[in-house]
């Protein structure tokens, strides 16, 4: 039998929408860990566990379980990295150089670009080297027989 954590918080997912929730010190399910109710003794741990089971039976939450936490000056910090991600949400980076967050309203831009990109009415067939500086292109009709993936695994 695994040893019960002695400093822990009760977490679960809310049944209706799946949101991560933590039992707070007022006995409510909160979406933040900040006011999580900390159990520091075996009796408190047992009480939290019972509360989780009770609210799961009442179909308020799903999959309640205890997470170990450090109590720091800045607040509660889950010990496992997994629980830190779960408490704070996806860590997807939004400051990577070159990364552009897809924005709404870009479809109008698409139409503008489509209009802008229209070829001349009487295009001239490409003669000789089809495109300067190109080591090869995917379609033989573009002037080469080298598929872009030909040398791939």
């Amino acid at each position: 039998m695994s040893k019960a954590p002695t400093v822990c918080v009760l977490t679960a997912n809310r049944l209706r929408d799946g949101t991560v929730v933590f039992l707070d010190f007022e006995g409510a399910w909160s979406e933040t860990l900040v006011e999580g109710l900390v159990a520091r003794s075996p009796d408190e741990v047992r009480a939290l566990r019972d509360r989780g089971s009770y609210d799961a039976i009442r179909s308020i939450v799903v999959d309640p379980y205890l997470i170990e936490v450090h109590e720091t000056l800045s607040g509660l910090l889950p010990i496992r990295y997994r629980e830190r991600v779960r408490a704070t949400g996806p860590s997807v980076l939004d400051d990577v150089p070159g990364y552009r967050e897809p924005a709404a309203g870009q479809r109008q831009g698409l139409q503008e670009r489509l209009a802008y990109a229209s070829p001349p009415r009487e295009p001239q067939p490409v003669e000789g080297p089809q495109m300067h500086g190109m080591p090869g292109v995917g379609n033989p009709d573009l002037g080469a027989t080298h598929d872009a993936h030909a040398e791939a695994a």
């Binding site: 495109m131 500086g133 090869g136 995917g138 573009l142």
Partner: peptide, 28 residues
């Protein structure tokens, strides 16, 4: 033959990497 002029470096790169031979001539 394709009608791809005027050449543009970014478009050329994209054609090189992101287009592939189609069974039907004139398509990619």
């Amino acid at each position: 033959k394709a009608y791809l002029r005027p050449p543009e470096r970014s478009f050329e790169r994209w054609v090189t990497r992101n287009t592939h031979t189609h069974k039907q001539p004139g398509y990619a």
